[in-house]
């Protein structure tokens, strides 16, 4: 028997089996930052529908529904905060809004956050949780991969620290851009991390995927993740890395 309260009191991790439940951006900033220290930025940036995209539902309609559902106008919350007393620029992606997909607003906010980290010489922490680039903004979403990665190139040139945290799920255009560009890459246990989704791969290769394929632990063994970190240890791991980088 599992009680919601006992899971919630345990950072949304199952007290019995350590399953990490998905948490939204608000919960994530609350968990990571010192109480009351997180200050969101660029909340005025709102998505538009440049392609007038319609699938089973018009994108314009979807944006309204997703806003009502998640309480946010797009899929990332960015801002300044403190983690164990260390000032950081923090971005948390929100799976509750269109599965955390990256369109123009997500790309712009993350690029601004990267530039803020550069200007203020603060470490940058991005918590990824995303199905990838947002189809409804097509090539514009694709360009956000280039926009965020170009900003990270500047941060890297200036000697900045970027800690990338991968959570369930991190796939597609987000993995193929900033999420994989961390100076240090941490992952929560058993998160799905990949370029293509497991169904696409299974359809392409027409064979069963190996056990544990595309999990954090699998990526660790293949050399693409530095550390798999339990949610309760994230704050201390981040602050330790900040101290090692002397930031």
């Amino acid at each position: 028997m599992l009680y919601r309260k006992s899971v919630e009191n345990n950072l949304s991790v199952c007290p019995e089996c350590d399953h990490h439940f998905r948490i939204d951006a608000d919960e994530r900033t609350r968990q990571l930052c010192d109480p009351g220290s997180f200050e969101p930025l660029w909340e005025d940036l709102k998505p538009v529908d440049p392609l007038e995209f319609v699938d089973l539902k018009p994108y314009a309609r979807r944006l309204v529904d997703e806003r009502n559902k998640s309480g946010h106008s797009d899929a990332v919350v960015c801002g300044k905060g403190f983690i164990k007393g260390r000032g950081v620029v923090l971005c948390c992606m929100n799976h509750r809004f269109m599965m955390g997909s990256m369109g123009s607003v997500v790309g712009e906010k993350i690029a601004r956050a990267i530039d803020l980290a550069l200007e203020t010489d603060r470490p940058l922490v991005i918590v990824s949780c995303s199905g990838g680039a947002r189809m409804q903004e097509s090539a514009l979403s694709l360009m956000q991969m280039a926009k965020t990665s170009a900003a990270l190139a500047r941060l890297d040139d200036a000697g900045g620290l970027f800690i990338s945290i991968l959570t369930d799920p991190t796939t597609g255009g987000v993995t193929a851009s900033f999420a994989m560009l961390g100076d240090v890459i941490l992952a929560e246990p058993k998160a799905l991390i990949g370029f293509a989704g497991p169904r696409v791969i299974a359809n392409t290769v027409r064979q069963a995927l190996p056990e544990g394929f595309q999990t954090s632990e699998h990526l660790l063994s293949k050399g693409f993740v530095d550390r798999v970190v339990h949610r309760r240890d994230l704050r201390s791991e981040i602050s330790r890395l900040i101290d090692y980088a002397d930031k």
């Binding site: 990665s149 851009s177 999420a179 994989m180 560009l181 370029f195 293509a196 392409t204 693409f224």
Partner: peptide
Amino acid sequence: GIGAEERGQAQAIAVNIM
């Protein structure tokens, strides 16, 4: 594909873009 994922398809593309 499986090999592409295991050899870091996303990481390879990300690094090229940056």
